[in-house]
Simulated scan of single mutants.
Amino acid sequence: MRKNVPAYEGVTIAEELRRNIQNSSNRFSSNEKFKLIASFGASTFPEHEETIDKLTEEADKALYRSKESGRNSVNLAYNTRMC
């Protein structure tokens, strides 16, 4: 969780992390290669919610959308607040 990061920047940071994980070179102790992937969900204050619990809930929903869409992706929470 990071404070004072606009939604687009949070998604950019998560996408960079996802890409770095995907492109990492990994080996078991037996020297056998293996690949890692990651999925991320993000939400921002106050666009998506106003409490930490609700922000976490919205980010979790976005994470599940990433997983449902084939994994190895980044999704931003929908704008759920009624202004």
Rank of each mutant, 00 (worst) to 15 (best):
I37D: 07
Y64V: 07
K54I: 09
T44K: 01
N20Q: 13
S43C: 04
E16M: 03
Q22C: 04
M1H: 03
A7T: 05
T80A: 13
E49C: 06
E50D: 13
S39T: 11
S24K: 01
Y78C: 01
E47A: 08
T44E: 12
A42L: 13
E15L: 02
E68G: 14
N79P: 08
S25M: 07
S30F: 06
L63C: 08
K35V: 12
N72G: 08
N31M: 12
L55Y: 04
L36D: 09
E49M: 02
R81E: 12
G41T: 06
E16L: 12
M82N: 15
S25A: 09
E57Y: 14
S39Q: 07
R71I: 08
K61Q: 15
R71Y: 08
R65H: 10
N31Q: 15
L63T: 08
S66M: 07
N72K: 10
A38F: 04
T80E: 12
N72C: 07
Y78K: 09
V74P: 04
N79L: 14
C83Y: 11
S73C: 14
T51W: 09
S39H: 09
M82V: 13
N20W: 00
E9I: 11
R19Y: 07
T51P: 02
S73L: 06
L55M: 12
S43I: 01
E57F: 13
F34Q: 03
S39L: 05
S73M: 10
E9S: 03
I13V: 14
D60M: 03
A7Y: 00
N20F: 02
K67T: 10
S69E: 14
K3Q: 11
V11T: 07
N20K: 10
L55I: 05
I52R: 11
N31E: 13
T56S: 08
D53E: 15
R18V: 00
Y64S: 10
K54R: 14
R27T: 10
R65T: 03
E32L: 08
M82C: 13
R27W: 05
E9N: 04
I13A: 02
